[in-house]
Computed example of a mutant assay.
Amino acid sequence: MSVQLTEQAFNPWQILQTHESQLEARYGKGHWGAASHFIGTMRDLNEGDSVQAMFLEHYPGMTESYLKKISDEALQRWDILDTLILHRVGTILPGENIVLVAAWASHRGPAFDACRYLIEELKHRAPFWKRETLPDQARWVSENTPA
């Protein structure tokens, strides 16, 4: 299980490749048959308004703890080998990656289910707060978009 928050832009494909190399070193090649991932990027539009930037705030320690909790829950609930959550914080611009969630399993069903669980729990319950910068004002986002 890997949980990380970062203020830096990231390349999700590089992160996945590195993580899979670590899994291969730990378990050997061919230990899993499925990997499911979700990559979220920042949109330049929300609620019909143009968005120029977003500031994503969190409580250090509390947010990581929650993300580890949902990763542990996924590992207990599905027959999966490992999970990964990487999430941006701080200032994010349209088109930049915000989140990477992944799950590895022997079969696609548990990998899909665990990955979807992780992103939905993260989006709806993790302690993050979003402030959008619009052309003429800034506003706090009160709720996430539906799946």
Rank of each mutant, 00 (worst) to 15 (best):
T133H: 12
F128H: 05
N144E: 14
R131C: 08
D136L: 13
H107N: 11
H107Y: 14
I119C: 01
I119G: 00
L118W: 01
K123R: 12
R139N: 02
T133G: 02
R108H: 13
A138D: 09
G109W: 14
W140Y: 15
P127N: 11
S142N: 12
A114T: 05
W129G: 07
L118P: 05
A114S: 08
H107E: 15
L134K: 11
R108Y: 08
E121L: 04
E120F: 00
I119Y: 00
S106D: 15
R108N: 12
K130N: 11
Q137E: 12
P110H: 10
G109N: 15
E121V: 01
Q137W: 13
F128K: 04
S142Y: 12
E121I: 01
E121K: 15
E143G: 06
D136G: 06
P127G: 07
T133K: 13
D136E: 14
R125I: 04
A138H: 15
R131W: 10
L134P: 05
S106W: 06
E143M: 12
L122V: 04
H107L: 07
P135K: 13
V141D: 01
L118G: 01
P127R: 14
W140N: 04
A138K: 15
L122T: 03
A111Y: 09
L118Q: 01
I119T: 00
V141S: 02
I119F: 03
R108M: 12
V141N: 02
W129Y: 14
W140D: 06
V141A: 05
I119M: 11
A111P: 02
C115Q: 00
E132P: 10
R125M: 08
A111W: 10
T133E: 11
G109Q: 15
R139F: 09
T133S: 12
Y117K: 03
A114Y: 06
F128M: 10
E143T: 08
S142P: 00
L134A: 07
P135A: 09
H107G: 03
G109H: 15
P135N: 12
E143L: 11
W129R: 08
R139D: 03
V141H: 02
K130V: 10
P127V: 09
R125P: 00
K130S: 09
S106C: 13
A138Q: 15
P127A: 08
F112C: 06
P127Q: 14
S106F: 03
L134D: 03
R131G: 02
T133M: 15
A138N: 10
L118K: 01
A126M: 07
C115D: 01
D136Q: 14
S106P: 00
I119S: 01
P127T: 08
W129I: 07
N144L: 05
R108W: 14
Q137V: 05
E120L: 04
L122H: 04
E121A: 09
H124K: 11
S106A: 15
T133D: 10
E132N: 11
A126F: 10
E143Y: 13
W129N: 08
F112E: 03
P135S: 10
K123C: 03
A114C: 07
H107V: 03
C115N: 08
L122C: 04
K130G: 06
W140S: 05
E132H: 10
T133N: 06
L122I: 04
Q137I: 04
